[in-house]
Structures are given as structure tokens and as C-alpha cells.
């Protein structure tokens, strides 16, 4: 069972503001899904390599050839509040 405190902690990590109702509902829903997920705890998996990716790929470096990138005005065109030729954000320190 996921506790209310855990829900709030995880929501903070995920930068999600949840309403009171959402916090309660999320605790129940996550608990029910995690109950199902915890079945994988029954499997014997010692010595099994983890798979993060299915392809047997190795990194290959491409040639470093300069090419045009997205022009600044196009990159900023969809920004909700562009500022001074960049993406506008509030000061991390709060107001001002």
C-alpha cells in the first residue's frame, strides 16, 4: 500500500501538483498496479543480465560536419513566453 506521504514525495519528484482528491485516488490506483507488478518479485532472476535495449547496437560516431540547425526564431516560435532571444523563465530565486 502506498502512503499519502509517498504519493506527495513522488509527485514532487515528478514536478506534478496533485489535488487532494488526486492524492487519495493515486494512492489507491498505484497500490493496485504495484500489487500486480510485484509478481515479478517471485521470479528467480539471479545472474540474469538486464536488457535496456533490444538491438545489439554499438555507438558509432558520425563525422563532425557543420550543418545548419533550426534558426533561432523558428525554435522560439512555439515558446509560450520567449524573452530576450531565449526561452523566458521566472527567476529560480522566486519573484523578480
Amino acid at each position: 500500500m502506498i502512503e499519502r506521504d509517498q504519493v506527495l514525495h513522488v509527485a514532487r519528484l515528478g514536478r506534478l501538483k496533485l489535488s487532494e482528491e488526486e492524492v487519495e485516488r493515486m494512492a489507491l490506483e498505484l497500490s493496485s498496479v504495484l500489487d500486480h507488478i510485484e509478481k515479478i518479485g517471485e521470479l528467480q532472476l539471479d545472474g540474469v543480465e538486464p536488457t535496456s535495449h533490444v538491438l545489439p547496437l554499438e555507438n558509432v560516431l558520425r563525422d563532425d560536419v557543420p550543418r545548419a540547425s533550426l534558426p533561432r526564431d523558428r525554435a522560439l516560435a512555439e515558446a509560450p513566453e520567449p524573452a530576450g532571444g531565449g526561452f523566458g523563465v521566472p527567476s529560480p530565486g522566486g519573484e523578480g
Binding site: L13, G14, L34
Partner: peptide, 13 residues
């Protein structure tokens, strides 16, 4: 989407 973000964030925490 909120549920999945919560689930994934929890699993990686």
C-alpha cells in the same frame, strides 16, 4: 499520463 509519470518516478526513485 499523471498516473504513469507517478508510477515511473516511483519505480526509479
Amino acid at each position: 499520463v499523471k498516473r504513469r509519470i507517478m508510477l515511473g518516478t516511483y519505480a526509479l526513485s
